[in-house]
Design a protein around this nucleic acid. Sequence first.
DNA 1: CAGGTTATGGATAGATTAGTACAAAACTAG
DNA 2: CTAGTTTTGTACTAATCTATCCATAACCTG
Lengths: 198, 198
Amino acid sequence: MPRPRTFDENRAVDAAMRTFWANGYEATTTEDLCAATGLGRSSIYNTFTSKHELFRRALLHYVATMNATQLGILDDEERSPVERLRAMFAAVIDGEMATRRDGRSIGCLTVNTTVELAGRDPEAAEILDRDVERRAAALRVVIAAGQRAGEIASARDAHALARYLNAVIGGMRVAGQGGADRAALRSIADTALDALIG
Amino acid sequence: MPRPRTFDENRAVDAAMRTFWANGYEATTTEDLCAATGLGRSSIYNTFTSKHELFRRALLHYVATMNATQLGILDDEERSPVERLRAMFAAVIDGEMATRRDGRSIGCLTVNTTVELAGRDPEAAEILDRDVERRAAALRVVIAAGQRAGEIASARDAHALARYLNAVIGGMRVAGQGGADRAALRSIADTALDALIG
DNA sequence: CAGGTTATGGATAGATTAGTACAAAACTAG
DNA sequence: CTAGTTTTGTACTAATCTATCCATAACCTG
């Protein structure tokens, strides 16, 4: 009996995600969100209750989709461990290039949110912490497999190497926002793997 | 004949810098800046003309002081090249620990600004680009010296290695804001150097 | 087709924002 | 001590921000 929605909630969250991603939380206005989603204020507040809650949904959507793609690459049994790490870096670089405009990328929403909000938004911080842990766990599995197979020569434990690779990815994201091009990012990734392969 | 200022302009810029550093550009209000500097609105606008201009001054102050300290470490002729790189990482880690509150650091103002503003603030972007270039240049000198001395085994050219180290530093900054503790940051730095030393 | 329920659009509220106007205070040079 | 200049505090403006209110439209079920 109720009047049904004329829009797809997931599409709206996706559009909001892209806006927050490109502009950050504070610099995104509710009107920006209306324009991006094509919805009116009423529909947005009726569906998502607040800007902050819509952001939370957008961030969850991001980690569930974008970063999940990277986890899929790490889980790909078809490739050897090091090949998976290379593929993951390649995906990061492709992502940076895909969002490039005026010589700079918009980076990664989780990195951007860590920098802008983690210190004063516990809800966002919790989502980010969980995501980091998931990524680190996936990396540890691949690294340990690589060590067993002899592909990874580093004697450092998988925990430390996973943390390190996570940091490198974050650094590449910042570099992309700072204007690094594909060749620069590729050379960062290649160099980073030297620490594992030797 | 004119009435003199009762405050030190540099101290005001420094206080503003810390506020922008901790909270970001957008989330810092002019009232925050009044509270942090101890000045009234009139004094701030009379001296700095706008929030944006004060931010520009604060960012310049940051790169001139905080990052200059790191450049000083890289130029320290007393130490061997690799020792300089280790000292630089140690300084980064100490900096992250010094601004830690509630388990997270506030990172680095240049990284934070790259993430929050570089894409839509050409003035900030220019300052950041120059700073990255200065840091990369100093790193290249140290790396080349290390390669000549045989301390750095990597055959990659100094440009690529400098870019890589810069990215790692940025990644450590993000990790610090994400909650990484001293041991975690130290392990990232140590692992990162494996790529140069072998 | 009618009744109940929700979605929607437009107007609006209330707070907060960056920035300004202005008068009075304060200082120094003569 | 006084004239001249700048600083400074207070009050204010105008815009913008998030969020809400309410009347109307739209839809499904029975």
